[in-house]
C-alpha cells in the first residue's frame, strides 16, 4: 500500500502533529511520501520523498493553490491512501481534494477495525466502522490518536513543486489569540464550568469551589462563547492546555476538543448529571449529580474541615 501524508506548517514552521500521519501509515505497513506546503528550512525528519511547495509562494491560506499542488502530487505518486490531520488545515483541504477526485473521505479516524476505519459519533458516545469504495481513500486523523512513540529521524529527498497562480481568496494576516489575564497552566487546581451550569449566575458556584480548593476557575468553550467567562479562562484545543494536580470538570460533557486541553491533568474529577458523559473516559472519579447541589455541599464540608 502507498500512502501520501499531508504535513503542515504554520508561519514557516513544521507542525510536530504532522508525524502522527506517519505513525498511522507505518502501522498499516504503507510506503510513504510526504506532501508539505512549508519552508525548506523546516522539513520533517523522514527518510523518503518530501514534495515541497514553498509557503512563501503558495501562501499560508490559498486553498485553491494548495489543492492544485496536492492534486499534482497525487497524480505523480498514485497513492492508495491520503492522510491528513483532522486540524484546521486538514479539515479544510481534505474535502476539497476528495471532491476533486470523487474519492471517499473519512474524518477523525481513531483506529482500524473490521476491515474499516473507526470514527467517533455523537460526541464519542458511539463509534462507527466506515468502509470506503474506490481506488483511493482520504482520511483525517483525530489529533493525538496516533502520537509517535519514538523521535522521528532521517533526511528527506526533496522534490520541489512549481507553485501555480490562481484563487481569489486573499490571506490578510494572522491575529494572535487573546492573551493576558490568568495563566491557567500555572494553577495547581482548576475547577471548570461547562454548559451544565445552565446560566451565567451559576458561575459563582464554580468560583466558590475553586476558591475553597485554592485554585483557579476555568471554562469550556460554550461558557466563553456565551460571554459568561472571558476567553483567557477557556480550556481546550482553541484555549489553554493545562495539567494541574486536580482538575474538576463541572457540567462538561467531555468533547475531544475540551479533553485536548486537560486530559494530562494528574487527577480528574467530573461532576455530571449524565452517567454516560464521555468525560467519564478520562476522569478518575465521576460524581453523578447536579452540580448545583453537589458543589455547595462540597464547599461547606471543605470549610468545616
Amino acid at each position: 500500500m502507498k500512502a501520501l501524508l499531508v504535513a503542515e506548517s504554520r508561519q514557516g514552521k513544521l507542525l510536530p502533529s504532522s508525524y502522527e500521519t506517519l505513525t498511522f501509515a507505518q502501522s498499516l505497513g504503507a510506503d510513504c511520501a510526504i506532501f508539505l506546503v512549508g519552508s525548506p528550512n523546516s522539513l520533517p525528519a523522514f527518510a523518503g520523498t518530501v514534495y515541497l511547495a514553498d509557503v512563501a509562494e503558495a501562501g499560508e491560506y490559498r486553498p485553491k493553490v494548495h489543492k492544485q499542488l496536492l492534486l499534482q502530487t497525487i497524480a505523480k505518486e498514485q497513492p492508495d491512501l491520503i492522510v491528513f490531520s483532522h486540524s484546521s488545515y486538514g479539515w479544510d483541504l481534505a474535502p476539497r481534494v476528495a471532491a476533486s477526485l470523487k474519492a471517499p473521505q473519512i474524518s477523525e479516524v481513531i483506529g482500524l477495525a473490521d476491515g474499516g476505519y473507526l470514527v467517533p459519533v455523537c460526541n464519542a458516545k458511539l463509534r462507527r466502522t466506515v468502509q470506503a469504495t474506490g481506488p483511493v481513500t482520504i482520511v483525517t486523523l483525530q489529533a493525538g490518536a496516533f502520537s509517535p512513540t519514538d523521535l522521528p529521524t532521517g533526511t528527506p529527498q526533496v522534490e520541489t513543486l512549481a507553485v501555480p497562480g490562481g484563487g481569489s481568496v486573499e490571506f490578510l494576516g494572522f491575529e494572535a489569540a487573546e492573551a493576558g489575564g490568568v495563566d491557567l497552566s500555572k494553577a495547581e487546581v482548576i475547577v471548570s464550568a461547562g454548559r451544565g451550569i445552565g446560566k451565567p449566575e451559576n458561575l459563582a458556584i464554580i468560583e466558590s469551589l475553586a476558591k475553597a480548593l485554592h485554585g483557579e476557575y476555568g471554562a469550556s468553550r460554550p461558557v466563553v462563547d456565551s460571554g459568561w467567562a472571558p476567553h483567557n479562562r477557556q480550556v481546550g484545543s482553541t484555549g489553554q492546555t493545562v495539567a494541574p494536580k486536580l482538575y474538576v470538570a463541572c457540567g462538561i460533557s467531555g468533547a475531544i476538543q475540551h479533553l485536548a486541553g486537560m486530559k494530562k491533568s494528574e487527577f480528574i474529577v467530573a461532576i455530571n448529571t449524565d452517567k454516560d458523559a464521555p468525560i467519564g473516559e478520562v476522569a478518575d472519579v465521576l460524581v453523578v449529580g447536579d452540580l448545583k447541589a453537589v458543589i455547595p455541599a462540597l464547599v461547606e464540608k471543605l470549610a468545616n474541615r
Binding site: R128, V130, G289
Partner: peptide, 30 residues
C-alpha cells in the same frame, strides 16, 4: 463513496470510579 458497516458503544477504557447518592454523601466521599 463510503458506508457505515457497524455502530457500537466504545469499550470503556477509563476506569473512573462512579459515585452516586445524595449531595452530602457525594461530597463526603469525594
Amino acid at each position: 463513496l463510503s458506508s457505515t458497516v457497524k455502530v457500537a458503544y466504545p469499550e470503556k477504557k477509563g476506569g473512573a470510579l462512579v459515585l452516586e447518592g445524595d449531595a452530602a454523601s457525594l461530597a463526603e466521599q469525594l
